[in-house]
């Protein structure tokens, strides 16, 4: 099986996000970067599926600045086999990313594409779905795991996505409002993953060393023949509305009184 997984370089969610004074973007100096956490779950799932279906390979793809090679290396250190970086500085809207991936997928022809459900920078949650439609593929978004009778040990290793014996389809449990939906999707397909699918592994030191020798191909939008003119432009970035300074209350009775008569929420 050939599995393509996407990994985006994003601001670390433990970093403090501040808006630039000129309202064009956020302050990036001094901010730590890391792989999008949902994408790490996608990488973990890809590795579990590969290991359960040998021979298989996992290709980690990122679109972004040259520095995104770091996040590709982190996927390779987790165990992915090779990387592809589509280098582009500046704004890429989700639609442009979807069209870049479409072209790459038409070239690579993977059996399955795994992606985080959203990147925690722009929080769009649309790229996988756009990509599925551009390719004419089926999709299963927000992949989760159906709790079953498997042991904790099995749970820690087994993929949550169940491939059919003929590898022509897969069963995916989806975390949707109000419950868990199970779909069967024909392969190739786009699956976007949610938080509960698995817990991504840490890269071991030997694997980090090994990752340095794995191949990473560099491409550009021009090399793929994709026009990345955005359909969505960011005009202005502002801080969220400031919260009025709060107060400390001395006891529960005061708190209840405030909530009841001042805030009128209970």
């Amino acid at each position: 099986m050939k599995i393509l997984v996407t990994i985006k370089r994003v601001e670390d969610y433990e970093s403090k996000i501040k808006v630039k004074p000129d309202n064009t973007w956020i302050v990036t100096d001094g901010v730590n970067y890391r792989a999008n956490p949902f994408d790490e779950i996608a990488v973990e799932e890809a590795l579990r599926l590969r290991d359960a279906n040998m021979p298989s390979e996992v290709i980690a793809v990122s679109a972004g600045p040259a520095a995104a090679a770091t996040e590709i290396r982190s996927a390779l250190a987790m165990g992915a086999d090779k990387g592809i970086l589509i280098k582009h500085d500046g704004w890429l809207d989700s639609d442009a990313v979807a069209r870049l991936l479409q072209t790459l997928i038409e070239r690579e022809k993977p059996d399955l594409v795994l992606m985080g459900k959203q990147a925690v920078d722009v929080d769009d949650n649309v790229t996988g779905q756009l990509l599925a439609d551009y390719l004419g593929y089926g999709q299963a978004t927000f992949a989760s795991k159906k709790e079953s009778l498997e042991s904790a040990e099995e749970k820690a290793k087994k993929p949550g996505i169940k491939l059919a014996a003929d590898k022509k389809s897969a069963q995916v449990a989806r975390e949707v409002d109000g419950g868990l939906e199970v779909l069967e999707v024909q392969l190739p397909a786009i699956v976007t993953v949610d938080l509960r699918l698995n817990v991504p592994r840490y890269a071991s030191l030997p694997n980090i060393m090994k990752a340095k020798k794995k191949p990473v191909e560099e491409l550009t939008p021009a090399a793929l023949g994709v026009d990345v003119t955005p359909k969505v432009k960011v005009l202005k970035v502002e801080p969220p509305p400031a919260r009025a300074a709060g107060i400390k209350v001395p006891d529960v009775a005061t708190l209840v009184n405030k909530l009841h008569s001042e805030a009128k929420v209970i």
Partner: peptide, 20 residues
Amino acid sequence: TYGKDMAPRVAARLGAGIAS
């Protein structure tokens, strides 16, 4: 989850941009 799942497919087919 319903809207997020299907809206981008509608946008893709209509050549539309999507604000989510």
